[in-house]
Structure formats: structure tokens, C-alpha cells
Design a protein around this nucleic acid. Sequence first.
RNA 1: GCUCAAGUGGCGGAAUUGGUAGACGCGCUGGAUUCAAAAUCCAGUUUCUUCGGAAGUGUGGGUUCGAUUCCCACCUUGAGUACCA
Length: 938
Amino acid sequence: MTYNFREIEAKWQNYWEQNHTFKAELSSENPKYYVLDMFPYPSGAGLHVGHPLGYIASDIYARYKRHKGFNVLHPQGYDSFGLPAEQYAIETGQHPAVTTEENINTYRRQLDQIGFSFDWSREVRTSSPEYYKWTQWIFIQLFESWYDRSANKARPISELMALFSKEGNKSVDAVCDDDTPTFSATQWTTFSEKEQQNILLKYRLTYLAETEVNWCPELGTVLANDEIVNGVSERGGFPVVRKKMTQWSMRISAYADRLLTGLDTIDWTDALKESQRNWIGKSVGASVRFNVVDFDAKIEVFTTRPDTIFGVSFMTLAPEHELVNAITTDAQRLAVEDYILATSKRSERERMADVKTISGVFTGAYAEHPFTKEPIPIWIGDYVLAGYGTGAVMAVPCGDQRDYDFAKHFDISIPNIFHDTDISKEAFTDKSNTKIANSQFLDGLDFKAATKSVIEALEKINQGEGKINYRLRDAVFSRQRYWGEPFPVYYVEGMPQMIDQNHLPISLPEVEKYLPTEEGEPPLGRAEVWAWDTQKNTIVHNSEIDHKTVFPLELNTMPGWAGSSWYFNRYMDPHNSDEFASQEALNYWQEVDLYIGGSEHATGHLLYARFWQKFLFDRGYLPKDEFAKKLINQGMILGTSAFVARVEGSNTFVSNDQINDKNVQYIHADVSFVNASDELDIEAFKLWRKEFSDAEFMLSEDGSFKVKREVEKMSKSKYNVVNPDEICETYGADALRLYEMFLGPLEQYKPWNTAGITGVSSFLKKLWKLYIGDSGLKVNDAQPTKDNLKTLHKTIKKVTEDIEQFSFNTSVSNFMIAVNELSVQKCTSREVLESLLILISPYAPHIAEELWAKLGHQSSISTAEFPVFEPKHLVESSKNYPISFNGKMRFTLELPLDLSKEEIEKTVLAHEKTIAQLEGRVPKKVIVVPGKIVNIVG
RNA sequence: GCUCAAGUGGCGGAAUUGGUAGACGCGCUGGAUUCAAAAUCCAGUUUCUUCGGAAGUGUGGGUUCGAUUCCCACCUUGAGUACCA
């Protein structure tokens, strides 16, 4: 009986499905454990071997936890709204729902063959109306909420309205737009309905506002900050420009501080927390208001160095600053307008590319220093960003390098306000070493004391106060796309109205084409049945719009991150049609215990999901305000690309060791044509592309043709993709699972190399042979020998530690060692071999199940109890502990692992005499290391 | 520029309360088996060596009886972020 993995794997995958082996039940005697993967976007290309890495790791952990007696929730689903399906639809006319369905089927087939222990009965798809009904519902809740700063949580908007009618908005400490007017209770009641709604929009956690957005003309949509990389769109790499548009936004800035402090309560990697901290970008400083000379206006600036206020020698406004036009003098107007025009023409990318060039222009206006009352020239310059702080800075050239460079360039004075420092070459920016001078009441103070003192002084004259500023911007929530969640919103006289939650979902309408309309409206502008009848509470044909009872619906759709910001809660109760999840389910499963996914979502998905979680927690819908206790970022598996060298301008290819000084260009060759010794299958390569069919090949001396290898990201265009289907077909799913883990640490980037899989493949064969011989089962009820038990318990100890620390790669090595040792020991003991199977079962579940059944068990191995390490089996059997001497005054005693510190010391003392005799001297120092070895230093 | 992570054989990588560096696998070399190949099994595989040994975990210092591990400085690579006031 040989190891037939194809038969075994199909058999057990079928068994698990038939028996609902991995179905998670709500009530259980056992403690719960929730293991989650970041759900995939089902792309048309299917899975490559890099994709399942994280799923294998989480699956091992989930299976391990089941063995440990936990009630494990391990679901999977699809983030199925997204751009590629829509772009494919634009090209082919194929409905995105159709391609998405096809892609999901491919994904499911590929996932199934790897033998994951997912509870598929809980599958969710963000693009299904049953799911996005609740995404729309959450949107409505956000609309119906405001953020109360004093209570530090979100509250219903009805409570805000009650406050307004009682005491106006003066005493309400809420997060709202900067331009919100102050009003009294009586004023509020005299406002028209529309005026009231307009004011409420300034408070709602999702709001409609004209904002400057990142517009991507190529994609025809706006993008959030995290969807832009190096000034171009993350998807497609198209240019992005700034544009004013009316858009839905999410008031995530209200949660900036809690998103920051919450990081301290969760077990995520430091790197990830750090990038979220950077993204939120908290800076502590002060807000200072400068009066403009001869002009009724104030310029507000934010600074982290209020202590340097006496070093201000000019101010700089962003070219887009709203006061620029008003304060510019006639003499300077032409120059200023030229400058603004020139900077507005430069794209975001150009502006980023040459940060070194200093440019700016004087407005002719002056501000007044709050303390010295001296005039300060006001400049504009594009080193000041409109989008950060107030878009204006107080320039302190002696204490800030950019201000310094600007001052030098335009020959502005650089007063030195630091005691005993040289600023002739560069600014002095060291906060910790600051001693202020030439600064009136601040003289002699350090950074901390001066900051405190100056803020008090500013508050006294009402020209500033201490302030905390965040880099985090509100997130734009509208996308001009078809394949996304529709908003549950219709418009009455331009004011957005929420559709009552009883009438959700608002399903995506059919359109003829998936492109924007000729008038530049989003694709939903093409829908003919896309109006809301407020009487019948249904969607009706556009022709019925009368603006009395039938109104137009919102044409934008929600961004990709909407559906992924709460899906982990839906898995707890995925088929509930009355609530997004029942309180019972939420209270039982609470939160994700272990979340595994890529670090590329650090400032997107993982931030937005935390935001929604906190919001739903505030409103009493969730028991926890962080959704994932522990998070691990799996690294990427890279491809090993193959390149063939072609002599420049010819059709002659040169083996990589024959290039010498020839002028060659390298071309990607499909990795399937190359063997482990980097030799190219020339015939296959010739057949690959027409242009290569009559190519010449200069071979190396041994007659082979060598390629150049390079490690790159795995991608279709680099011809280095390895498909898991082929691996499963040739080596089996268990071999794939083991090998992906064996490649290296989970969190690390590492190259794939198919050749190495023979190692784990032969391990599986050896494992099989340990149990099954030519004449059948080799296992019997023989008493385990001491060596058997030693091998077993050594392995239990190591593997348990490995799993708890997510060092899955070393476990595989430990299995190989164990199987080799037990083979040499000719172990046939049922007791030992059964335990070993359970250890291996999370990693290689199919073969473990098969052997488990062959050992006579009726039930699945998945429920078997994980073996417990017993230290006594690692006790040395020999009477005399070996004493070794390495020539450097070091003695080593090998001792049992389960001795206490006292016992070890006793043993050591017993050996002291022997040691002393050996060396003729008494040990100076005894170093006791419990559980390991003992060192005696002579 | 700033922040973070990492540098160990031909390759992926082991080894951390500081204690025999290179586990395990790939590849390579030799052998057994075979008509032959695949598969399998056995032995070897850090470098240098006068075969006694010696050196060795990016570089240079430091702490220690002892450092891949801890500290300082530097170099290199990767990732994130960037005129953030």
C-alpha cells in the first residue's frame, strides 16, 4: 500500500464537507476562538502559490486550537466589489456580477483542493444584496450620528437636535466643520428645515460637502489618500489631480485620537502600528492668530514650536489659501497671480519630484507680531501645503530648515533666538537642547517651559491656544463607479435623504454601459430605473420623477473599503436578515482573536475597519471597540524569474555563462521552461512565441543553455507564476501546505522555488511508511521505548512552542527529525505514533486523517486532543552525567530538563569534586540554567 | 530626510533569559541498487590548511570566563512615509 495522496486528499475533503466537520456552532461548552484571514478579491487570474500562504498559517492555527478544545470560528468569503471586474465589464460588456461569480468559482475550487478547514456555511460576499443591505444600514447609522467630544463618543443626531433647541450650539463640544456658525436655541427654532439640515450636515459622521478631492481622470473617479501612491493611482498608476467636488465623506478625523490610543490595547506588529501612527500624524503645538496690518483679517497658523515665536521674520501662505487674494497689494498682484497660475499647473507629482526648488512670492501685505507688534511680511510659497494645518505657517528661519532655506533664497532676515548657537550654515532644530534668547519673557527657558509660557501668554491676549493637529483627513466616500454599494440616499431639493432602513437593500440597477455618461455623471446616471418613490417605498422608473413624491437617487457608489470594514462581524451571524448580526452572536464571538493578512492594508482597510468598529461600539451595537486582538502580517512569496540573454538587435540567444562582453538584453522566459539547474528547455521556448521559432542559440560548453535568475514579485507579466493546482496535482495538498510553511518565517518575504518541494514530499512518504508497510499496518500495542518517548516528547514540546509563536517553518523540520528518528528506532508503538499524527495533523491534515482512520478510529482526527508535553520523558537514562571540558575552563553537565533550580545546584555540587580533580582546581562560579545545561567556570 | 525591519554556507533558512554556529530541506559530490533512467537507500558537503589545526554569523569597537544573540558607531539591503510647519 503506497501513499496515494490524490485519492486520500479527495476522500477527506469530501468527508469534511459531508460531515460539516468545521461548522462553528454558537453555543458550546468550550471557549471560543476566532481565526480570520483577510478575505480575497476574486481576480480573474486565480490563485498563485503566494496567495494561500496566510490561509495555510491561519488554518494550522485554527486546527491546532480545535485540538486544544476551543470552539473555533474560521470563516472565509469574498471582497467581491472592485475595479478590475468593472474595467473588464467596460471592455467586454460582460456584467461584473457574471465575471465575479466565475472568478469566485475558480477561487473556491482552488481553495478547496488545499484542504482548508473553513466553515463555508458562513461565506459572505460584499457584492451580494443580503450583505450590502447592512453596509447601507451602517452608512445610515453614521449619517444619523455626531461625535460628542466631551463624552468622547458618537451619539444619535436626535440628541444633538434636542441640545440645539434647548441651548443652541455654543456649549456643545462636538466634532464639526470649521465654518459652522454659532447660534442660540431661539435662532435654531427659527431656522427653516433646510437651514437646519445644512447645519446638521456639518456634524454628521458621514456628510455631503464640497471638498477638494483627488480626481483621477483616467479612472474617472475620486480616490482616497491611501489609494494614491507617489502621486499616481495605486491601481493602474494614473495621474491624480486636485479638484473640487461635492462628495460624501466620512468624519474619521473625529476618531483620530482614539484610533491612536487604541493601538496600545491590541497585539499588532510594531511596524504596522507605527505606520498607522504616522498616517494619523498627531502633532502637539499651538494655534496662533496673527492680525493682518491695515486689514480686517486674521491669519491662523499651526506650529509645533510656539517657543520660537520671537524668531518669526515672515509668514508663508499656501498659494491656495483663502486670504491670498484679499490681502495682496496692487503692486504685487500681478506677480502673485502669475505664481498661483504657475503652481496650479504643476501636477501633484511634479510638485513632489522637485522639492528642492525654492519658489514663492511676496504679497505686499504684513501681519502684526502678537507680542512685539512689529510688521511681518506675508509671502506665499508652495512649500506650504493647503491640506495640512491651516495652510499657513509662521516662518522661523533660525529654527526650521525649510524656513531657513526660503529666507536665504529671498534674502529675508534670520534673527537668532537661541542662546549660544551658530546658525550661519543651517537652522538649529534640536528641541531638546534649546535655550531661548532675545525673546522677552521667554529668555533663558528651555523648549518645554517656553512653550507653556507662550501659550499662556497667547491665551491671555486671545491670539492663540495650545492645539493638537492631526494629519489624518476625513475620508472621501463617493466613487463614480458602477460596481460598488449604492447609497441608500435620494435627493429632495438637493438635500440628501436617507431611505428608511426597513426598505433596504437598495440594489444596484441595471445599466447598458458601465462608463460615465456623456454629461460626466457616474455610470448609475445611465440607469433608467433609478428613482425613489416615497409613497410606495420602492425604486421606480426615472420618468416618474416629479420632485413631489418621486425623487432621484444618489448616482455615486461606495468605495471598495466599505464592505471590508465590518465583514468580520457579519461572519458571526451571516444569514441574519433582521440585524447585521444578533446580539447573542456578537456577545458570544466578541472579536477576532487572530487576524492574518498583508501589511499593505495598514493605512487603508485596517484603519477604516477600526473606525467603523469604534463607531458601532459607541452606538451600542458591538461589545468591543477593537475588532482584532492579534494581527500577523504574512510576508509575500516572491517568484524566481528566468531571463534569457539576447544579443542586442539580433535573434541570437546566448547562454548566461557565454555572454562575456557581448551587448545583450534580457527577456523574461516562462519559468516552466527552466529546470532546477537553470537550464532552458530550448524546444519549449521556441514554440512559446513565433518570433523565437527560428532563433539561434549559443550554448554553454556542456551543451546546455543557461538562464539568468532573479527574484521578483510573482506576476503574470513576469512569467514567473507558479499555480497551486499544478503543485497539488504533482505533489499533493499536504506537500504544498508543508512546503509553504517550510520556506521560511511567515512574516518574511521569500522566494518560491519549486525544486525544493521534493524534501517535504519525501517526508510525507516516509511518514506513511512509518505506519504502513508492504504487508499493511505496522502499528501495534507494543510498549514505547524510552527513546520513542524521548523523540515524541521532544517533538511535542518544540511543535507546541512553534505553533504558539507562529514559527511554522521550524515545526516542519521538527517533524522530519521525529520521523527519521522513529524510523531508525523502528517504532511501532500505537501510543507514540497516534500522538505524532495529531501533532502533524494541523499541517498535513489529509494524510493524518487517513492514517488516523487506518489506526481504527471512527471519528475525524480534527477533534482529537492535542498531546501534552511531559518533561519526565526527556530525563537522561544514563547514571553518570557526562562531563566535557573544552579547554577553555568550561565544564558542561547535561542534566534532565525537569529538575528544579535547587536540584540542579545539588547535582552540580556533587560533581564539583570530580571537576576539581580533573582540573586540579575548585570552580569559581557556578552558572545554573534550569532546563538546559550547567556551566561551571574555573 | 524621517520611521521600521533585516544582514549567518552555493541556496531557503536553524540556533536569543548570552553557553559546542550552520539544525532541517534544496543543490552538489561519491557509493549502493538498476540493462538504463526515475525512485529509493548510505556517506560527505562553512572556508583555509603543512591534516597538527586555524579562521568564521555585514564592518569597526565595547561589555563578558564566554557574543549570531547585549551596547555604541558605521556600511548595505528591503519596506513604509515624506516640503506635516
